[in-house]
Simulated assay, not measured.
Amino acid sequence: MPQPWIRSARYDGLLILAPPFLALAAVLALPAPYRSTAQMPLLAWVGLVVLIDVAHVYGTLFQTYFDPLKRRQRRTLLWVVPMACYAVGVALHSLGGLVFWRALAYLAVFHFIRQQYGFLRIYSRQEPRTRGDWLAPALVYYATIYPLLYWHLSPGRNFNWFIDGEFAQFDWPLGRLVASVLYVALIAAYTSFEFRRWRRTRRINLPRNLLLGGTLVSWYAGIVWFNGDLAFTLLNVVSHGIPYLALVWNGGASPRQASGQPRRGAWAGKYGLWVFLGAVALFAFLEEGLWDGLVWREHGAVFGWFQQLPAVASPALLMWLVPLLSLPQSTHYVLDGFIWRRPK
């Protein structure tokens, strides 16, 4: 039985499965301060946050608003989701900025976790059913949940998801120990099950196991092993954003798209890849420029023109502005819960 690649061994291997391992190699090559402090070089911030993290959000446009067929099929959803996200965002921000950012951070975390589970389902689609099938989903979920538990049950870390204080944290060593024991036990149980299955069938599902290994590597190293903003961002962003863009460029999760089905909409044609990458990068730059000019004022060297915009400090105005500027993210998180669903 062939391996259950989405497109091909080369495509999946380089763009979906390798990023966590390449990111870890890059972190290990960093000078020590970047693995254990809040230092973040400006160029690294631009490359990771703007050109991958923020840019990948706009990949959703090519699976929704920029695709004529899907735009017609999901017309109601594509109107309702952004309006609902904005209304909920304003309501949350009216309760306080921290309330809004905390809710958005937990929504982002859920989105990141579900992406790993989604890839697991894709790579498990050809597997015959066995009694141990629950182990792979349990491991992919706990490979992401355990580092988050560790983060929540530890003193303050040198990194955050969006802003300082977004996660509820308190130092509980016993809780970390219990979570760690369960983590090791689940890895051992899955490894034992896979070894027994290999002995019985002489076959191993390579992409599924590489996905699980990459998930373990990126989440554990980024949150538990290292305690640096650059290390966390590199592992978190590269491992999530690049596979997502690769999935979008493939046209979705179906291998049929890669076997000749023509692309539709803005990414069709000879220069479709450059249109795709250029568009997501441009949208990301414009969004971050608006954030920097209107709210953060932290990267004037990158967003010089946007510094001409008036800085907004009024809580009454921020209540309407911040949910608007974050609407691409919140819409991306919610829409992705619908656009990748398959009957099986």
Rank of each mutant, 00 (worst) to 15 (best):
Y65C: 02
P33V: 10
T60E: 06
Y34E: 02
I52F: 13
T60I: 12
Q39A: 15
L43Y: 01
D53E: 15
V88T: 09
P82M: 09
V49T: 11
R71Q: 08
A38W: 06
L22W: 08
Y65N: 08
K70R: 15
L22M: 12
V50R: 05
P19C: 04
P31Q: 02
T76D: 05
A38I: 06
D53W: 13
L43E: 09
F21P: 07
R35P: 00
Y34I: 02
L30D: 03
F62G: 09
W79E: 01
A32G: 06
A91K: 04
L42P: 00
L69I: 07
A26C: 12
M40Q: 14
A38Q: 13
Y58G: 08
S36A: 13
A25E: 03
P31C: 05
Q73E: 15
R74N: 15
R71W: 10
L30N: 08
V27G: 02
K70L: 15
L28F: 10
L42G: 01
W45S: 03
G89M: 02
L51Y: 10
F62W: 12
T37Y: 05
R75G: 11
R74Q: 15
A29D: 01
H56K: 14
A26M: 11
C85G: 00
P19T: 10
T76I: 11
R75W: 14
P33R: 05
A23Q: 06
D67N: 15
A32T: 14
R35Q: 14
V80R: 06
H93M: 14
Q39K: 09
R74P: 00
D67C: 08
L30Q: 10
D67T: 07
S36C: 07
L48P: 11
L48K: 05
V57A: 11
L43D: 05
A29I: 08
P82N: 10
L43V: 13
C85R: 00
V50H: 03
Y58E: 12
Q73L: 11
S94R: 13
P20Y: 05
P41H: 09
A32P: 09
Y65T: 09
A44W: 11
L24H: 03
V80K: 02
A25K: 04
A55V: 12
L51G: 08
P19L: 10
A91D: 04
A91G: 12
A87R: 00
Q63Y: 12
D53N: 14
Q39L: 14
V81P: 08
R35Y: 01
W45L: 12
L61N: 11
T37H: 06
P68Q: 13
T60W: 06
L69S: 13
R35H: 03
V49L: 09
R72D: 07
V90Q: 03
P41G: 05
T37S: 15
T60S: 14
M40I: 09
Y34G: 01
A55C: 13
A55P: 13
R71I: 00
G47E: 10
Q63R: 15
A26K: 00
W79K: 06
Q73D: 07
V27S: 03
Q73W: 10
P20T: 03
A29E: 10
A84N: 02
L92Y: 04
S94F: 06
K70T: 07
F66G: 11
L30I: 06
L30A: 03
A44V: 00
P31D: 13
L92A: 14
L77I: 07
A29S: 15
C85K: 00
Q73S: 08
